[in-house]
Design a binder for these strands. Structure first.
Lengths: 153, 153
DNA sequence: CTACCTGCAAAAAGTTTGCACCCTC
DNA sequence: GAGGGTGCAAACTTTTTGCAGGTAG
């Protein structure tokens, strides 16, 4: 139960210790910067923000650290097809996994969870002999504001 | 009504003529090879198959032709996060939308549709005032073969 | 002091583009 | 015959890797 209250830094440290790895100024800075940011950062964006704090950080370190964060369950890589890998933070979201509603008109992104859908996904996977580890679901359309605007221009 | 019975070659030709472009041996070979194959080919795979027929085809031609097929609504590019762009044929699948189960171990991709999930997606969207136009759902995990292999190495 | 970690730069990997020649229309 | 199409190779982009030197434990 105390386990659930650990923050990113603690989860990272535990993982490092457990695997004989070391903490470093850069790793903590990158993790902090990543978790301080909203939503889905590309490696470029993250690098910019990290360098605003410490201009000496190399891009290779960002790549290496993000893979590390992904391995210890703190981050997840996402591909939106624009050629840039983006990372999303998922700490504490394991039980509260979320999906996305994306407004193609104004760009608003709403997160949601639907237990019934999750259950059905598992059922579908079972039917095909798959064991699902994670999933992505994105619903694209127009939000209420844009819908209203379209009706009364 | 005759419109719906046009095959890929006809759709492609129409598009070319309409846009002042030209047919070519390579374009038809690539389109034929692509449509003769089962779903989700990477550019590499497609290039191999095309070269089995005509070893002289350049990879740039594959890239250019696939973009062309995407433009005329015959194919759709997809990114499953393994660093390879894959194309899926969508002719006649407009009404038969489907989602994907992806094996992170061997790369197998299974298509599925689940009406209940689709219905629930609409319900969720409604609850947030969204009107969904299209969506993407990908379930990542391990397929039955890889599950079995993992249990008995 | 012994790994591990970092920054740099070179290397990979995937995709695009410039160019001279070829082929449709 | 003119303008698009092709193959080749070079250019680009994004990510990975090799190395020499730095640093945590």
């Amino acid at each position: 139960m105390a386990t659930n209250s650990r923050g990113p830094r603690e989860v990272l440290r535990d993982y490092l210790v457990k695997n004989g790895l070391k903490t470093s100024r850069q790793r903590e800075l990158i993790a902090d910067t990543f978790f301080a940011a909203e939503g889905h950062l590309s490696v470029d964006e993250l690098l910019d923000r990290v360098r605003a704090e410490d201009a000496g950080v190399g891009q290779a370190t960002i790549y290496r650290t993000m893979k590390l964060l992904a391995k210890c369950g703190l981050a997840e890589a996402r591909q939106f097809g624009d050629g840039h890998t983006r990372y999303e933070h998922i700490l504490g979201k394991r039980e509260h996994h979320h999906d996305h509603l994306i407004c193609t008109s104004c760009g608003t992104i709403v997160e949601f969870v639907d237990a019934q859908i999750e259950a059905l996904q598992t059922r579908v996977a079972d039917a095909h002999g798959f064991t699902v580890v994670h999933h992505k679901m994105e619903l694209y359309g127009t939000c209420s504001v844009c819908n209203a605007a379209a009706r009364q221009p």
